[in-house]
């Protein structure tokens, strides 16, 4: 099981050929209180780096991009009723959707946990 991060602060945790996607704990801090999450339809084909979901705070709406390409197989409906989960568990039960990877090689271009941590510190 590997977890990888993007420069746009999404994470993807891969088990077999299915990746679970969410936004990083760092991103959740930056966004503030999340009030709404718009999730993709199951079955939708997502392309790496393209819009996949939307996360909204009171004052901002941010696009969430697909960290890797794939087909959406499941979405976290709990977020529709409890968007606060993105704040309380960004990298656990605040996940957004799961997709079946169509090009696992894309993972190689993403950062591991240590690299992402360094990246975030470098940005501050």
């Amino acid at each position: 099981m590997t977890i990888k991060y993007t420069k746009d602060h999404e994470w993807v945790r891969v088990e077999g050929d299915v990746g679970t996607v969410g936004v990083s704990d760092h991103a959740q801090h930056q966004l503030g209180d999340v009030v709404f999450v718009e999730l993709p339809d199951v079955g939708r084909a997502l392309q790496q780096g393209k819009e996949a979901a939307v996360v909204e705070s009171v004052k901002a709406a941010s696009d969430v991009y697909a960290p890797v390409s794939g087909e959406v197989v499941e979405v976290n409906h709990e977020l529709e009723n409890e968007p606060a989960r993105v704040n309380t568990g960004a990298e656990t039960d605040g996940w957004f959707f799961k997709l079946r990877l169509t090009n696992p090689a894309e993972l190689d271009g993403l950062m591991d946990e240590a690299a992402y941590k360094a990246f975030v510190e470098g940005q501050a």
Binding site: F36, S57, K59, A61
Partner: peptide, 13 residues
């Protein structure tokens, strides 16, 4: 409320 739908936040979206 729900002002994230609006132009001052979403701009061209």
């Amino acid at each position: 409320t729900l002002s994230t739908r609006e132009q001052h936040i979403r701009r061209e979206k």
